[in-house]
Structures are given as structure tokens and as C-alpha cells.
Design a protein around this nucleic acid. Structure first.
Length: 824
RNA sequence: GGGCGCGUAGCUCAGUUGGUUAGAGCAUUUGUCUUACAAACAAAGGGUCAGAGGUUCGAGUCCUCUCGCGCCCACCA
């Protein structure tokens, strides 16, 4: 018997195997391996200082799949990277270093970002290792590193040459706080209370026209008034001019079908720009452009006496002035939803400015079809992409008036304005410090202005298949590996990362980026609410590691089906820990009963180097296994392998976990071990063959079970494998052992039926004893079982185990059509 | 307003293509030192499967409607 400690210590064990995996390069990717490649487009987490529980939840999901596929023998390409450029990183650095990018020299800020990333990234990544991600961490990309900048710029040039990207001056969604353009996907909703003001405009004939607005501060931007063409109240006013109060200019009254007659007074002012409708009218009726707000959200000169005020101050002031002049006739308190910037929660504005866009609006249909080409897990998530694409109303704005991002590889000719692209050989470039080669292609001038803007972070992270593949492959080879096998991610970024990656893959390679996607849900608190600092309900995975270990956390994460949100529950994590303890105890039991020589004999004869079962010729199961209970548990085990494998193939890891858990606890621990105990303890000679049968069964059931569990609890299973199962000839890690396959010879469905009867009798006996307050060891004098002939035969075959487990003196079998059990 | 998901035991969730008596964990109650495990084990109680209607020999499962919860999108004048 091997020495084995009484308690399982997850923290120590996990640390040990983490170091072992790294040292031995267990998860290192080998591009030369000839096996089928299973490639995963791992989400590069946005560097934020710390892994959160939602990360832990969804990343373990993809790791379950990766580990399963690896054991199946596929060549797993499971890279790792971090997304660390753009606004999220800028905001993190501003917070950590207590600076404001706007108030620093551009280059100083960029240097500070790079320096900060160097400081925090290793600790950040450590959590992904701790959770047991089986990625190849030996080569990691960062979306701001030289290679990623090069790829990103190169592919930008590709888009430019394919005319999929364009620059235009147009109204764009703008964040006044971050002072940059943003994309449609970066907006969130927020419900706010405000006043709906009825404001008096005067007509030439002195009559009044009352409009309703929530944004009176934009009066100075008013360029028209709209009414519905069928609105009788205003029908005779259409085509006439009205005077803007306070500012005195005259604007036309126009009719448009989009007007809601029931809303407010049914008359609305159009400002360039108050909202998206204004943009549409601006375009449709070719209205003049009057910008009353600047890039920082401050009123411009156009706002005359209100210039220099912030929008909200100006609003209060203008309402006051209008009231004094009795030009506000009604104020109604309303609550409405407006868009805020997801990064800083500032109310967004629409501003006219020059930006770079990737064309998407003209490709909606094609993009929806591409979504259909991908296999979705779960399927319903595809609809979310489709809905998003259908609802798109802006092309994808990728330029940001920021600092820490991938620069555009372009300059503009000072003379004719023509774009000058960087030479692909020179990438990555920073046009702010690098000079373009040659002269302007149009006018042959040699004076250029650099593009100051940087690309949005999604413009680079939408290229993760390339960023990851080019860690190991040349550009040409990498393209051959598109589509990758799997994109795993959570549902919140379907409209960004998933969508953008599809767009880029199509434009560059005319291919979908991956054949399959798996979408995880979110972690909510115990009450099902979002976790947030303000609610104080945030659970940190680091605390869970400390208290219960990563395996317990992973076990919990496998508890709900893919795509579903999960409520955090400490009890569930405790249940995971309990499972580990139980597994440990079962292992102790098995190992206490197997001698070292038996172990070696078994591993030699039964398992080949890879841990895969040997060919049938070497199969000793048919020679050794003789008792019915053993055949029963082995048959159940085959059924389990079948279920677990089928589930994993469907990305239904939770189904696999559930089946394994039930088998382990109910079939194996509660019943089989109880039944077989007595046979193991009886060391008499005549029992030798039965004892051997039990030993072999326990050995192979446990080893199979360990392999089935390895994707979920990689640390505990590794510990047990290394301590008890691994011999010189075996694979160096359980994660390199084969995935168990069903042994048809052992998959005897009749034996499963026999087992069912056996359990029924055992349960009846236990109930009998429990009801009388007896010990489970108490003797039963006589048990009478009435059953049909077939069952009778089956019971005869398991009668020794049955008598032993219940401590029964006499078993009497009677013939009957119905199974009844009487105990005396 | 549109789309998607969810509603099953006190709580958290399973429930395969419709098929015997709807399952598990936690919680509750009772019992048991049983040579793996008392942080364990055994047993028990607990359900109009949100509601209504329909299809079917048969519905937790399929269809229609209603109600409740969550998420995404739209509405923003």
C-alpha cells in the first residue's frame, strides 16, 4: 500500500502541479504535431489589474473543452494574449497613476502606459494560470506589442486597398469626457429624469408655434422645425418661417412622417445635433450645420451669451431666461433613456468630425449569412448577432482622438490632402515620429502631416485569430488555419468582438473566422443581481482560490449549462470541495486495497504508454472480472463514458459533469464500494479470484473516472494520477492520457438491469435498518424476495455480495411476477 | 415597442428525439462510530412542473395565448 495523507490540500497541490505543467511544457503547442488541430481563439482579457469572477466562469468553460479535446488526441492550439491598448488601458493607467492623459505630453503618457503594463501584466496573467487554463503560456501576445501593431497596421492597409475603409467628415457619436469619437457598440442606456419643455417660437404674423424639447440649450443649433404632414394644428404652417427665441434667427417649418403627433406639442425643433433623428433630417433635408457644443461638451460661440458654459449649466440658464420672457409655457417632468459611454458613463453627444470608418452598413445581409455559417453553442445566441446587425445604423468608426493605441499607418499630403500609406516593410510605424517614404502619389509633394488619431482597441482585437496564429506560424501558414475551430466568449461582447472579428475575417480572407462559437453566461450574485462595487456584492475569485482552491471553483463553473447565467453560491463551491474530499477518500480506499505490485501489474497489462487502453488482445478484463457486481459497475462505467463523450461533443460540459458526479457518488461510492468491501476484506484463499476481480474493477473504474474528471478538476486528478497510477511507461500527465473510450464487451446492458435489482434490495435493507434505528452492520436473519425467473437467476449470481453487504443470514427466493422484498 | 432567455421541491438547478412512479445538491427531520470518509453515512418528509387552452393513446417536454423575472436592441424631439 502506498502512503497517502488523510486530507486533500488543494492549495498546496494546485501550486505543485502548476509548476510541474509549466516546467514540463505539458500544454506547449507543437505546430509540427501531425494530429488534427483544434484551434481556439482565446479571448485576450482586457488588462484591468485583476481577474474577476465572470472571467473565471467563462474561461474555465473553454478550458473544459480544450482539455477534453486534448485527451481525445487532438493537437490543441490554445494561445493566450492580453488586450491592453485603447481607452480601457488609458483609463486604468489614469486611475492607477492618478494622471490625466489630456494634461500630459503625448509621448510621456504613452511611455507611462507601457511602463504600467509591464508592472501589472504578470500578476494579472497569474490568475489565469491559477484557474488552471491549459493554454500555452510560453508565447503570449499583447494587442499593443510590436507584432500585433504590425499585423493591425498591415491589415488596415489591406482594408484601405480593398476600399473597405474610408475617411469622412460626418456626424459621429462622441464622448465629451474622453473627447473622442466612439462606435455604436460602445454605448449603454441610462434612464434619467428630465424636463420636457414647451417653448414658444414666433411666426412672422405674430402667431405662436410651441415646440417641445428636453434640450433647450441647443436652441442656438436649431435649424428647422418639424411637424407631421397630417397634423391639422400645423398644416397651414408648413413652409413658413419661425423665429428661434432668444437667438432671433428664422428657421423653416417642415413636415416629416417620422413625427409623433401625440408627443409633446407635436412640433419639434431640429438641432444639429441633439440626437440621431436630427442627423437623419440633417441629411434628408440638407439642413445647415450649427455646432453649439464643442468636443469637450462646452457651449461654443454659436451659443452666444451661453458660450463657455457646460451643456447642463447652459440648460438651466436658458430655461431661466426663457421663463423670464414667458417663453416656456409648460414644463413636464419625464423620465427617458439616453445613451452614455460604456467606459466613463458620460452622456454622449453627436458631433460633426472627420473619422475613419470600416464599411458595414452595405454588408448587413452578407454578415448575417456569415453568422449562419458558424455553428453556435447554444444555438439561440446567433439571433443576438443577427438582431445586432439588423439594428446597425452607423458604419464602424475606428478612429479615436486618443493616445495609447495602434496608430494609423498613414500621413496626409499637405498640399493635396492625399493619403500616404506606410511601406509594409516598415511596419509597425508611428506616423508622429516616423517619416513616410517617397513623395505624394498625386501631386509629388514631399510634405506630409501625420495622422494623429489611433485605432480603437476593437480594430486590433478583431484580428485575434491572426494575432494568435502568427505567434507560431508565418502569415501565409496562419491564413491556412482560418477558420479556427472555436471562438469561446461571453455573450456581452457578441456585438463587438464577435461581430467585428467576423467583419475583418470576411474582408481580409473571405472566410468565417471560426467554425464554431461557444457563448458563456454571466455570474450574478446570490439574488441574481449584477455584481457591482456600488452594491457591494462583488465576489473575487482570488478569495475562492484561497479558501477552496481552483478545482472547487471550476467544479462550480461547470454546474450550469452553457450560455446560462449563474448565481454565485458559496454553498455550491463548498459542494465542489466536498466532492474533492470524497474523491480523495475513494482513492484512499482503492489504494489501501491494492498492493504496489498489483498496481504495477495492472498498469503494465492494461494501459499503454499514452494511458489509452491496449488492444483487445492484451485486455485482461475478460480473464479477471468474474463477479456480477463488478460487471455491473463496469457496464455502468461504459454508459457513463458514452454519456460524457456525447455531452462534450455537444459542448455540454455541464451534462457530462452531472453524469460523472452521479455515477461517482451514487453508483460507485454509496453502493459499489459498500458492496465490494466485504470481498476485499476477506483474505481467505477461496475468495482470491473474487478479490482480484474487485481489485481490477476498482482500479480501472477509478482510473477511467479520473480521466473523465480531468477536464473539470485538473489539479486533483493530476495529483491522484501522479501518486498512484503513473508508472514509467505512462504519459507524464493525466492530461496527456487518452480520453476513455467505450469498451463494447463490458457494456452489457443486462448487467445494468441486474445492478438495478441489486440496488433495490440494498435500499430496502437500509430502509429496514434505518426505520428501526439499527446500525447498518446489524444482522438480518432472513430476506424473502419474490420475483420472476429471470430476476431470480440474476439474484443468484449476486447473492454472495448481497448477503455480505446487508449482513444477511438467509435469502429466500420466491417466484412472482412482481418484485417484492420482505425482511424478517 | 421588437428580439432572446428563464419560470420544475423551502433554495440552487438537471430533466436527451413526447413514454412507467418528475430527479440531484443544499436546507429540514430522524437514525447510525460502518477497518475510505462523523467536515461521514443511511433513511424520511417535501412538487397542480407559472397559468389557461390545444395537438396526442400519452405533455414538464410540442403549438397558441396570458402573467412574472432577466438580458439585448429601439424609443430619446
Amino acid at each position: 500500500m502506498k502512503e497517502i495523507s488523510k486530507h486533500y490540500n488543494p492549495q498546496e497541490t494546485e501550486k505543485k502541479w502548476l509548476a510541474f505543467w509549466e516546467k514540463e511544457g505539458v500544454f506547449k503547442y507543437n505546430p509540427k504535431n501531425k494530429n488534427k488541430i483544434y484551434s481556439i481563439d482565446t479571448p485576450p482579457p482586457t488588462v484591468s489589474g485583476k481577474m474577476h469572477i465572470g472571467h473565471a466562469y467563462s474561461y474555465t468553460h473553454e478550458d473544459f473543452i480544450a482539455r477534453y479535446r486534448r485527451m481525445k488526441g487532438e493537437n490543441i492550439f490554445f494561445p493566450f494574449g492580453t488586450d491592453d491598448n485603447g481607452l480601457p488601458t488609458e483609463r486604468l493607467v489614469e486611475k492607477l497613476k492618478k494622471v490625466r492623459a489630456n494634461k500630459m505630453k503625448r509621448q510621456d503618457f504613452i511611455n507611462l502606459c507601457n511602463k504600467t503594463l509591464k508592472e501589472i501584466t504578470p500578476d494579472f496573467i497569474a490568475d489565469w494560470k491559477k484557474i488552471g487554463m491549459s493554454c500555452d503560456f510560453s508565447k503570449i501576445y499583447s494587442t499593443i506589442d510590436d507584432n500585433c501593431r504590425r499585423i493591425s497596421q498591415k491589415l488596415f492597409i489591406d482594408l484601405y486597398k480593398k476600399e473597405k475603409v474610408f475617411r469622412q467628415e460626418a456626424p459621429v457619436v462622441w464622448c465629451p469626457h474622453c473627447q473622442t469619437a466612439i462606435a455604436q457598440a460602445e454605448m449603454e442606456d441610462e434612464e434619467v429624469e428630465t424636463f420636457f419643455n414647451d417653448i414658444v417660437f414666433k411666426l412672422k404674423d405674430g402667431k405662436k408655434l410651441i415646440i417641445s424639447t428636453t434640450r433647450p440649450e441647443l436652441l442656438s443649433s436649431c435649424v428647422a422645425i418639424f411637424v407631421h404632414p397630417k397634423d391639422k394644428r400645423y398644416k397651414n404652417l408648413v413652409g413658413k418661417k419661425a423665429q428661434v427665441p432668444i437667438f432671433g434667427n428664422w428657421v423653416q417649418v417642415l413636415a416629416d412622417n417620422d413625427i409623433d403627433m401625440k408627443k409633446g406639442t407635436g412640433a419639434v425643433m431640429c438641432c444639429t445635433f441633439g440626437d440621431k433623428a436630427d442627423v437623419e433630417w440633417f441629411r434628408k433635408y440638407k439642413l445647415p450645420l450649427v455646432m453649439s457644443l464643442d468636443r469637450a461638451g462646452i457651449m461654443t460661440k454659436k451659443a452666444k451669451k451661453y458660450a463657455g458654459l457646460s451643456a447642463s449649466v447652459a440648460r438651466a440658464k436658458i430655461i431661466e431666461d426663457l421663463k423670464k420672457k414667458k417663453l416656456i409655457v409648460n414644463q413636464k417632468k419625464i423620465s427617458h433613456t439616453l445613451n452614455i459611454h460604456e467606459r466613463c458613463k458620460t452622456e454622449v453627444e453627436i458631433l460633426n468630425s472627420e473619422q475613419w470608418y470600416i464599411k458595414i452598413l452595405d454588408q448587413k445581409k452578407e454578415l448575417i449569412e456569415l453568422g449562419e455559417e458558424i455553428k453556435w453553442h447554444p444555438q439561440f445566441m446567433r439571433i443576438r448577432l443577427e438582431n445586432w446587425i439588423k439594428g446597425l445604423s452607423w458604419d464602424w468608426c475606428i478612429s479615436r482622438q486618443r493616445f495609447f493605441g495602434v496608430p494609423f499607418p498613414i500621413w496626409y499630403c499637405r498640399k493635396c490632402g492625399e493619403v500616404k500609406l506606410a511601406d509594409e516593410k516598415d511596419l509597425p510605424v508611428d506616423p508622429m515620429s516616423d517619416k513616410p517614404k517617397g513623395k505624394c502619389n498625386m501631386c509629388k509633394s514631399s510634405k506630409f502631416t501625420p495622422e494623429k488619431d489611433v485605432m480603437d482597441t476593437w480594430a486590433t482585437s478583431s484580428l485575434t485569430p491572426q494575432l494568435a496564429l502568427q505567434l507560431f506560424y508565418s502569415e501565409k501558414e496562419a491564413q491556412k488555419l482560418i477558420p479556427m475551430t472555436l471562438r469561446p466568449q461571453a455573450h456581452d461582447i457578441i456585438s463587438t468582438w464577435l461581430f467585428y472579428t467576423v467583419v475583418r475575417s470576411q474582408y481580409h480572407f473571405e472566410k468565417i473566422p471560426w467554425s464554431e462559437v461557444m457563448i458563456s453566461g454571466h455570474v450574478l450574485d446570490a439574488q441574481g443581481r449584477k455584481m457591482s462595487k456600488s452594491l457591494g456584492n462583488v465576489v473575487e475569485p482570488q478569495e475562492i482560490f484561497e479558501k477552496y482552491g481552483a478545482d472547487a471553483l471550476r467544479f462550480w463553473a461547470a454546474g450550469r449549462s452553457l450560455g446560462q447565467n449563474i448565481n454565485f453560491s458559496e454553498e455550491e463551491i463548498q459542494a465542489g470541495k466536498k466532492f474533492l474530499t470524497k474523491l480523495w477518500n475513494v482513492t484512499r480506499f482503492v489504494m489501501m486495497n491494492l498492493s504496489l505490485t498489483t498496481l504495477e501489474k495492472m498498469s503494465k497489462s492494461y494501459f499503454s504508454q499514452s494511458g489509452k487502453k491496449k488492444s483487445t488482445k492484451d485486455d485482461i478484463s475478460s480473464k479477471v472480472v468474474r463477479d456480477e457486481a463488478d460487471k455491473w459497475i463496469l457496464a455502468e462505467l461504459q454508459k457513463l463514458i458514452e454519456t460524457a463523450t456525447k455531452s462534450f461533443e455537444k459542448y455540454d460540459y455541464s451534462g457530462a459533469k452531472l453524469a460523472i458526479e452521479k455515477f461517482f457518488w451514487i453508483k460507485l461510492a454509496d453502493n459499489y464500494i459498500e458492496i465490494v468491501k466485504n470481498r476485499l476484506y476477506d483474505e481467505s484463499r477461496k475468495n482470491k479470484k473474487s478479490r482480484e476481480s474487485a481489485k481490477f474493477t476498482l482500479y480501472s473504474v477509478l482510473f477511467t473516472l479520473l480521466r473523465l474528471l480531468a477536464p473539470f478538476i485538473p489539479f486533483a486528478t493530476e495529483e491522484i494520477y501522479q501518486t498512484f497510477f503513473r508508472t514509467k511507461k505512462c504519459a507524464k500527465s493525466i492530461h496527456l492520457c487518452g480520453w476513455p473510450s467505450v469498451d463494447e464487451k463490458l457494456y452489457d446492458k443486462e448487467k445494468i438491469k441486474t445492478g438495478k435489482i441489486l440496488l433495490e434490495i440494498v435500499v430496502a435493507m437500509r430502509k429496514y435498518k434505518a426505520e428501526r434505528g439499527l446500525s447498518m452492520k446489524a444482522e438480518i436473519k432472513k430476506i424473502e424476495i419474490s420475483c420472476d425467473a429471470k430476476t431470480k437467476k440474476a439474484i443468484r449470481e449476486i447473492i454472495d455480495d448481497l448477503k455480505a453487504v446487508g449482513n444477511i443470514k438467509n435469502v429466500k427466493l420466491k417466484k412472482s411476477n412482481k418484485l417484492t422484498i420482505k425482511i424478517f
